[in-house]
């Protein structure tokens, strides 16, 4: 059988990969797209204007162009989300591998802390952490990381335990391979694919959690553009200026849909067992 081009073989993945790329590019080239429109400055004379040819998404209470703020908002949301998922991914994987490989007291300590985090509604703690540390995007990222790593750590640990006593690992130990070598050569490659799939499917959800914290006022601080925080702004004008609510929300929704679809299709490609069910 002739091998078809990867992108042609997986059209769903390709479509959403392209869409995701477009969102990322829009964030990167925000100044090009928006021209000389400034996301943080507006003129009071132009406050709360309906969508028009000049301001296609309308303007907010400060007279700022909402389209510009939505585009620049992608920078904040995407960067924060990728950093967040990255932190959880690395932290969870490392702690999980260490816990599973070494066992004993290290395992007990890490896993009891993880149990503690899981036997507790995550958002409550995230709100408390973010609120107490003070409102800022980095603090929101820290807050969600604190409550989200256990899921990854447990997953990585369970996969390490499955091969911990496999012949090829025992052989490596017996022949005197150094521990770091075993961890990198055997444990990490075994754990990585599933962890990567999990991380990819989590991007959308993490983006929503970050936006939720900003919406509650525990994330991004005005006047910097961020979708959740823009929604919080628009909330008070929902009767007079619904566009302030509709467009930032739409931006979150579309981005989450794209990244969720991307994650799901990636999982289907890498893990066909699940698809057959």
């Amino acid at each position: 059988m002739k091998k078809k081009n990867f992108f042609l073989r997986y059209p769903v993945f390709t479509i959403f990969a392209v869409l995701a790329l477009m969102i990322i590019l829009a964030a990167v080239f925000a100044p090009v797209i928006c021209g000389d429109s400034d996301p943080t400055k507006g003129s009071i004379t132009e406050a709360i204007m309906e969508p028009s040819a000049e301001h296609i998404f309308g303007t907010d209470k400060m007279g700022r162009d909402i389209f510009t703020r939505v585009i620049y908002g992608a920078r904040t949301s995407l960067t924060a989300t990728f950093i967040l998922v990255g932190i959880i991914f690395v932290l969870g994987t490392v702690l999980g591998i260490i816990s599973g490989y070494f066992g004993g007291i290290i395992d007990a300590v890490i896993m009891r802390i993880a149990d503690m985090m899981i036997s507790f509604p995550g958002l409550v703690l995230a709100i408390a952490v973010a609120g107490i540390l003070g409102a800022s995007i980095p603090n929101a990222v820290i807050a969600i990381s604190v409550v989200s790593w256990p899921k990854y750590a447990r997953l990585a640990r369970s996969m390490v335990l499955r091969i911990r006593h496999a012949d090829f690992v025992e052989a490596a130990v017996v022949t005197g391979s150094k521990t770091p070598y075993i961890l990198f050569r055997y444990m990490l490659p075994n754990v990585l694919p599933i962890m990567a799939i999990t991380a990819a499917t989590d991007i959308g959800g993490m983006m929503m959690e970050l936006a939720a914290l900003s919406f509650l006022g525990f994330g991004a601080v005005p006047p910097s553009p961020e979708w959740g925080q823009m929604l919080n702004d628009g909330r008070n004008f929902i009767q007079s200026a619904p566009w302030m609510t509709i467009f930032p929300g739409l931006a979150i929704f579309v981005t989450v849909v794209v990244f969720n679809m991307l994650g799901d299709s990636l999982r289907d490609i890498l893990d066909p067992k699940d698809k057959a069910r």
Partner: peptide, 10 residues
């Protein structure tokens, strides 16, 4: 995929 705070506002 729909954030519940946006759904609520809608």
């Amino acid at each position: 995929s729909i954030p519940n705070f946006w759904a609520g506002l809608l």
